[in-house]
Computed example of a mutant assay.
Amino acid sequence: MTDDTTGQDCAPPRRAPAGAAVLREEVTVAIRAAVFAELAAVGYGRMSIEGIARRAGVGKAAVYRRWRSKLPLVLDMVSDVAADGLPVPDTGSLYGDVRALLDVSARALSHPVAAQIIPDLLAEAARSPELAAALRTALHDTQGGIAAAVVRQAAARGELPATTDPRLALDLLAGPLYWRLAVLRTPFTPADLDALTTAVVAALRAPE
């Protein structure tokens, strides 16, 4: 038997005869989608297991069988985002790699759900060390790995010194995007991204 039923719980769930209940993948997928939708709609502070279950079309027990509360649930979602990450561009030039990465990142940050969720989670992270650590992985460590790969590729092509600091590359790439898209809520045009790419490349090539 499976553990999940649609709608609100009317009675305590029956135990699976073999011990642990079977967790249906489609129910897990629906709950995960509902978490993102709830975060975007009401924010972390007002998000509840009841609201997630209602949006997913399942009973609360289906959520609690997977996560004991909303914090580990959100931590799991953030970890998934970190695991997926963004692709490392390999266009054959530093300018092309930076431009491709800025384009993908700008589109991701401009997504309506991301635009609602990321600022809210960053504010909540000030009150939750666990959430702060998970966000560091999702928003810093993963992006940092991509920036490091771009720097390594450019150094191998002779476009950058081998001593170029990947952390500087990450700051130059992520800072303007977050400021414009998450703080000012002002979109980037293709011309804006071209100009930013030129500025990032020039800054990385500047002598130390």
Rank of each mutant, 00 (worst) to 15 (best):
L101M: 14
R55Q: 13
A82N: 05
P72G: 03
G59I: 01
R68V: 12
L101I: 02
G57E: 10
R99G: 00
R107Q: 15
G51R: 11
Y95Q: 14
S48G: 06
R65K: 14
L102Y: 02
G96N: 09
R65C: 07
S48P: 06
D97P: 05
S69K: 12
A53P: 01
A62T: 14
P72I: 01
V98R: 02
P72H: 05
G57Q: 13
M47Q: 05
L86V: 09
L94W: 01
D103G: 13
R55L: 09
R99Q: 10
R55M: 03
G85S: 09
G59H: 04
R107N: 15
D103E: 15
P89D: 11
K60H: 14
R68C: 08
P89R: 04
L86W: 10
A53I: 03
D76N: 12
G59E: 07
L75P: 00
R55H: 13
L94V: 00
L86A: 11
A100H: 10
A83E: 12
A53T: 03
D97I: 00
A56E: 05
R65V: 05
S93E: 04
D80W: 11
G51Y: 03
A100G: 06
S69V: 10
R107D: 15
P89N: 09
I52D: 00
I52E: 00
E50N: 13
D80V: 01
V88G: 01
V78E: 01
R68E: 15
S79K: 14
L73E: 02
R107A: 15
G85W: 08
S69I: 08
R54I: 00
K70H: 10
G51P: 05
G59W: 06
T91D: 04
I52W: 01
A106C: 14
A82T: 05
R99D: 03
R66C: 10
A61K: 11
W67T: 02
V88C: 07
A56F: 05
D76G: 02
L86E: 05
A83G: 04
L94G: 00
V74D: 05
G59Y: 04
D90H: 14
A83Y: 04
S105P: 01
D84Q: 13
I52N: 00
V81A: 11
W67S: 03
Y64K: 14
G96T: 03
T91F: 03
K60R: 15
G92I: 08
L101K: 07
G85M: 06
D97A: 04
S48W: 08
R107Y: 14
D76P: 00
R107F: 12
S93Y: 04
T91N: 06
D97F: 01
D84R: 15
G96P: 02
A53H: 02
V63K: 07
D84Y: 10
R66A: 11
G85Q: 10
A62Q: 04
V81I: 08
V74R: 01
M47N: 02
R55T: 14
L86K: 02
V78R: 00
T91Y: 08
L75Y: 03
